[in-house]
Amino acid sequence: MKIKSTEIVDTFAEAFKMCGSRVIITAETREWAMAAAQSMTGFATSVIGCKCEAGIERELPADETPDQRHGVSVLLFAMNAEGVGKRLVERIGQCVMTCPTTACYNGLVSGTTVSVGDQLRYFGDGHQISKVLDNRRMWRIPVMDGEFLVEESFGVQEAVGGGNLLLLGKDQKATLRAASAATKAMHAVPGIILPFPNGVVRSGSKVGSKYKSLPASTNDAYCPTLRGSVNNSMVPLAVNCVMEIVIDGLDVKAVEECMRVGMYAAAKPGIKQITAGNYGGNLGQFHIHLHKTINGN
């Protein structure tokens, strides 16, 4: 199967069950809201190394936020609800509460919640104040510029991590251009983030390593430089550069949609193949078949 001149390999991306949350950060200005969001989503590329994966979902215009100020929507994923809770407390506490003028709201309605404001309130040293409006409890924590307002608990839901596309291009320049085009298109899909820098990861990995202490190591099958050195190289001739886009989403549909949009945007001249990473289907709960995904629409 092909999109334009790019071959879509008949394979699937193997994605994992994760737990996701949505955080709405608002501030007096767009810049301050973004500053908090960027800080909060920094160093959150891979759950293995960062204990969570997080990214900016989108910016919110004032009329879409609870307090009618500029906002940013952030998604944060971890392996379970408890993990999400801990990471939210750490990251909102360190990156949002600290940032001038911000407030922080739950953006996900769910039956399952984790307490966030309920933990952070102790920073108020007894001066914190709770407010309940419309059955939602907020905490007001006095800080030096006024008050930091944070919702008591945040919704979490089952989510999908590790959706991915591998772009196999003729050279680094063409591959990078395609990857950029893809991530730009993919960002527009609601409910997803691309946790890696600018959405792209070059150091794709495989499970395991010859070194006992490492759980993962470089994805040698897609390293062009190793085409002659390893037995299982997946790098076709004329492909000299591979880049991966990893997608986390609040549900599998969002990830599928995101991958679909990504494939169309990435299928540019110079991209020989688009494929996806999997582990033979035994590890991940979600198998997103590339062909099916394209046909699905």
């Binding site: 608002t26 609870p66 407030a103 407010k131 409006l133």
Partner: peptide, 13 residues
């Protein structure tokens, strides 16, 4: 004298 963020929620409501 300040502008409490939470008030925005109430007033909007």
């Amino acid at each position: 004298t300040y502008h409490p963020t939470y008030l925005r929620l109430y007033l909007t409501y």
